[in-house]
Amino acid sequence: MSDKLKIGFYWCAACGGCEISVLDIDEMILDVVELADIVFWPCAMDPKYEDLRAMEDGSIDVIFINGSIRSTENEEMVKLLREKSKKVVAYGSCSSIGGLFGLGNLYSKEELLEYGYNTPSTEEGGVIPAENSKVPEGELHLPPLLHHVRSLDEIIEVDIYLPGCPPLPNQLKEGLPLILEGKVGKYDLVSQKSVCDECPLEREEKKIPRLYPIQEMMLDPERCILDQGVLCMGPATAGMCEAPCPSVGHPCIGCNGPVRGVKDQGARMASALASVLGVEGEERMEESEIIDVVKSVRDPTGSFYRFSLPKSYLRYKRRDIHG
């Protein structure tokens, strides 16, 4: 074997976008291959569990793990990968902060399965797959879901975080060589400034009378989307993505998670938005009018925690409300 770096990619509960994003770096992939050998990549190769188990501990220099931790299989595999790897990169928002699937944490595992397999909009009267089932060829085992979605660092120690859904070419072009050369610290690739810092739209002092659903608005493409009364998560979301969504008139949905140093993206956004909503003339409002303004924010939990729920303070739905 050459003395090139040995790297690997692994996906947990993921959509596959992160895997594809690796190819988004175009011809730079050649530079990566120049620097490193890819020794483990289930998406592109076909390794078996046994192959990984057979590898020596610490034999992978850098493993890039994407996807949330949703099943026992995810859990086992990342523990194994931790043993086999010198450095673990939480690649993409799912592994860094729990990701979109984390919204599932607002429901129990049973509710999710019931919804997925037995509702009119999905498959009414469908069968929830059993963990163990017998088929003519033998016994089948499905790895069960964990009670809730977790971020990678809840299971194993992470050395470098690289959020994004998925991480964008510009982030990768800058970040990958640094990761491979060992030149970045744990949070160096998490921006400490928000999307607003890079957003080209014209912003005003935030005095938003109330929010409106985006479909009800004719947005001015030059002006800050939030200023126009449509929820944009940009202010509470880590940048380095160069604000691709607001730049083309779509509000930021918060995929990078909180900026470096902030623990709870949703709480921050709630605090910020609630402070400025209806701020003008508030002293003349009755408490009921004020509450009405707050109501214009639809599904605050889902909107503010869309990507970061498993890494927030509360992480998953608790069973405190009875009856």
Binding site: L106, S271, S275, M285, I290, D320
Partner: peptide, 25 residues
Amino acid sequence: YIDGNYKTIRKIDMFTKILEDFGID
């Protein structure tokens, strides 16, 4: 501070809803 408590009303109201979604009474 003139109108700080109006911000508090909105924050607590919005946040209470979020807590409820998280299953906290």
